[in-house]
């Protein structure tokens, strides 16, 4: 084929890029790469907002790869790798292992990388049903069940949440820059909610959908942003360090929520975690959650 070469672009796209270099000598900074797998890229987007508010992050990090903000292709070496999104194709596994072999510190970035997140809802159906729903010819794609990234590689730190929390992110990068482990607590959302003098949604709004708050079993770090705005906790940060799932299921049952409601609430973000999948099955003592039955 003899195609005509397109005319050179006159628009200077470089000017529209976010400036990711700060005045500090780049040798002192941590070379960082941010990779994206199966997710909505919302955590990357949230990160751009943090940059906007906190230029000090750029005094610590030197991004070598960050697709949403820079045109640069991946440059090795890098020390810190943020991996966003869950694994859902066979190629992802190879890429993830290549990242692990290169990075000194690997961070699961957001709910999808940490627990599978929203894409993991498809795991409760057959893969065939999912592919048929989305693609006209399912034989052309070979997807697998979504997994959190620590299913395949060792993850040093988890930044949970949908999206990630600013304060927790700052704590992590300061700690990585100082070569110490970050202060990420395992306490429940209830602690941070009560410290903010909020009324208890679980106790006050009985019987309505909004009262279905997963706060007592969900790991905090979000500064109770949902419950402070009178929304029930969705459990996006996954289970806390010592969660009591049977009691949570009993509480929801006592409030009259159906088995379907309870399963959907537990499988919404972190259904792949051992604790929340237990909650999803607990109502009937079933082995397979609700979605699977529907697809079969």
């Amino acid at each position: 084929m003899n195609l005509k070469k397109p005319p050179a672009r006159t628009l200077d796209l470089k000017r529209t890029e976010v400036k990711l270099t700060a005045s500090v000598n780049s040798n002192d900074k941590v070379k960082t790469a941010l990779f994206k797998f199966t997710c909505c890229a919302g955590c990357q987007f949230a990160l751009l907002y943090f940059f906007h508010q906190l230029p000090e992050t750029l005094e610590l990090l030197d991004f070598v790869y960050f697709k949403m903000a820079m045109r640069k292709e991946l440059e090795e070496p890098y020390e810190l790798a943020f991996v966003e999104g869950g694994v859902s194709t066979p190629e992802h596994i190879e890429q993830l292992k290549a990242i692990r072999s290169q990075a000194k510190v690997l961070v699961a970035f957001g709910a999808c990388a940490a627990h599978g997140g929203i894409p993991s809802i498809k795991n409760w159906q057959t893969e065939r049903a999912v592919e048929e729903n989305v693609y006209p010819d399912p034989l052309l794609v070979s997807s697998i069940k979504v997994s959190p990234i620590d299913e395949f590689v060792k993850v040093d730190y988890h930044l949970r949440g949908c999206p990630i929390d600013e304060v927790e992110f700052m704590e992590l990068i300061r700690s990585v820059a100082a070569d110490k482990s970050p202060y990420i607590r395992g306490h429940p959302v209830c602690v941070e909610c009560k410290l903010r003098n909020n009324i208890c949604i679980l106790l006050m709004r009985e019987g309505v959908q909004e009262g279905m708050c997963l706060g007592p079993v969900t790991r905090a770090g979000c500064r109770a942003v949902c419950t402070s705005n009178m929304r029930a906790c969705f459990g996006c940060r996954g289970p806390m360090s010592n969660s009591n799932i049977p009691e949570m299921v009993r509480t929801f049952m006592g409030k009259g929520f159906s088995a379907k409601d309870i399963e959907m609430r537990f499988t919404e973000y972190a259904g792949l975690s051992a604790e929340f999948s237990e909650g999803a099955r607990a109502y009937y003592g079933r082995k397979t959650p609700y979605y699977h039955r529907k697809a079969a």
């Binding site: 306490h187 429940p188 209830c190 602690v191 009560k194 007592p216 009591n244 009691e247």
Partner: peptide, 13 residues
């Protein structure tokens, strides 16, 4: 204690 969430609400309040 089986029915306890270990959520810390009782101590914070």
């Amino acid at each position: 204690s089986d029915a306890c969430f270990s959520c810390g609400n009782c101590t914070i309040a």
